[in-house]
Design a protein around this nucleic acid. Sequence first.
DNA 1: TCTACCACTCAAAGCGATTTGAATCACGAA
DNA 2: TTCGTGATTCAAATCGCTTTGAGTGGTAGA
Lengths: 351, 351
Amino acid sequence: MLGVHELIMKLKDLAAELGLSQTTVSRALNGYPEVNEATRERVSEAARRLGYRANVNAQRLATGRAGAIGVTLPLQRSLHFGPHTSEFLSGISERLAQYDIDIVVTPIDADDEVPVFRRLVSSKRVDALVISAPTPNDARIAALTELGMPFLLHGRADNVTIPHAWLDIDNEGAFHRATSHLIDLGHRHIAMINGPEDQTFAIHRDRGFRAAMQARGLTPDPQLIGGGRFTDENGFRLAQAFLERTPRPTAFLAGSMMTALGVFRAIRSAGLELGSDVSMIAHDDVFPYLNADNMVPSMSTTRSSIRAAGARIAELLLQMQEGKPASSVHELWPVELVLRESTGPAPRQSG
Amino acid sequence: MLGVHELIMKLKDLAAELGLSQTTVSRALNGYPEVNEATRERVSEAARRLGYRANVNAQRLATGRAGAIGVTLPLQRSLHFGPHTSEFLSGISERLAQYDIDIVVTPIDADDEVPVFRRLVSSKRVDALVISAPTPNDARIAALTELGMPFLLHGRADNVTIPHAWLDIDNEGAFHRATSHLIDLGHRHIAMINGPEDQTFAIHRDRGFRAAMQARGLTPDPQLIGGGRFTDENGFRLAQAFLERTPRPTAFLAGSMMTALGVFRAIRSAGLELGSDVSMIAHDDVFPYLNADNMVPSMSTTRSSIRAAGARIAELLLQMQEGKPASSVHELWPVELVLRESTGPAPRQSG
DNA sequence: TCTACCACTCAAAGCGATTTGAATCACGAA
DNA sequence: TTCGTGATTCAAATCGCTTTGAGTGGTAGA
């Protein structure tokens, strides 16, 4: 069988076909100004008709650009290879689809990230990187900066002074508002089921929670604060334990819809009713397949589309390729508080 | 600021450093036999010490291999860019991590797949493709075969005679067994909430369900059969409607854990108890963050890890690159039936 | 008429690897 | 001593693009 390679048209073939030089054809296709409009037209038409596509590897070698951005996904840290990942990727790819830019997914062990980065850089595999799930002193920022690899951080690292690009949502503000709202409703014993303690986003949420409590003269009960992975199981176990305490919490903050599902079950298991006996506000990354609005009772949420964040990140990376300095890319997105049926006035104190 | 490019060591530099030709260095690094062991040792040591990495773009151009496999993710068909996606990708990358092979994620509109394929092929972007979510007469198989692009189908296309590689789970057998078990428990009115009707996996499940019913002399009630997207919302709506029918179903088959969550809520909303009043078996792709075992009541499932499938698919693709003929790659995985608390004997007939 | 300039187009030199075909060396056989 | 041979190593061609620097021909101004 004839390899398909034989059938593939190269720049040389196309140029020969047209009776033009490769230079002119290349320039015509890449939109350079010094080529006659009529010629350009003729070239594009022929390229289309003959199905010519530039070999990206040759192109990348010649230009020195990789034509790809890398998205690193932590393999060990079970955190972000969850349902978030696909939505986030989906957002990125949505924005990049119209450009000829590949998305290279690179799994990465939390242990030895730097060697992987080094490999990505020196092999010229990607032009830029998206990294996620930062810790406060995230070492990846220094590593990538030193390696000269452009990157955009999804989230924030608190204690890093090196200038770098980031996009984050206002986790602190979101949980501050959510907590304040619960307090307004009369809740005093509020439990919080946060994410992994080492992650900045969880730290920020914790900060927002505590600040809101303290602003009203309330002391957060350390017995009612938990963290960990965003699984239904973790939500269930923590909530079940919290509901056995005295005084019993009348409201929950949940870090994700997954944990919220677990909390929900724990509330029911305890014979309580969500929305009346116990209130809950969960953080919603907006999964199309798990709609807070359609739950029964519908779930009050702090909402921010992780898909939209992915799309915006792709856009910012494109701008950075065009020269926008990384140090000027700082976006802090506000988070909506969407009130639904899972939040209600605190029941009369019993304990 | 000095570009990082200046710092990157090229083959030429490394060869000069060693006082060897590029040829020898290249061969030493790529494990060719005609190089002295001592020399090879010296070369590898220097490469390691100086942090040399081959520029993949040059490598790809020279060898004609892309060093990447493409994973197409449907953008329109909301189906597979769900929580499955990240697990599946995770499985693929897990297996590929040790090789120097990239995973290129390519979003793709269900409408115009062929142009995208054509682009992938002629631009030499990937060596092989993974395609998912087939329909019975899936046109992509013919398209990719004609283009000469190796691919592996995750799932099966029923009516396609062109030989091709696939890996699928035994959806028909799984639902046959699940249905038979429910019948054994005394259930007669069994509702089924399937996936999107055009997908083969959903068709196979339907077939298994019907066959099992008929084998016991039961006629599936068309009023109790529904399909659609794998969302909690869809599960909830369908289940709610089904529960209002007479006779009321005493058991449910759910196509995914997401729909199962919706069915679960509908059952509760109707004031019924899962596991006693109503039974349910759901299909579980094994999401680490949504564990059937930890639900209350724990969920009986037909279980097959989509992550494991991803890992195996990556492995098979590697073998295909080595020459294993696509027509010999056919794997049909059995599906476990895991019985837990959500299934119980049918309640006494009331209607 | 001559020169300058503009608008195009081209041949050839990279990009950084792999690979072909030839050269070198040491050594035992003739 | 000479030659063939196997074990190594090398120079140069190649992969398919982009880009540099050098022509073209034609038109307008002096």
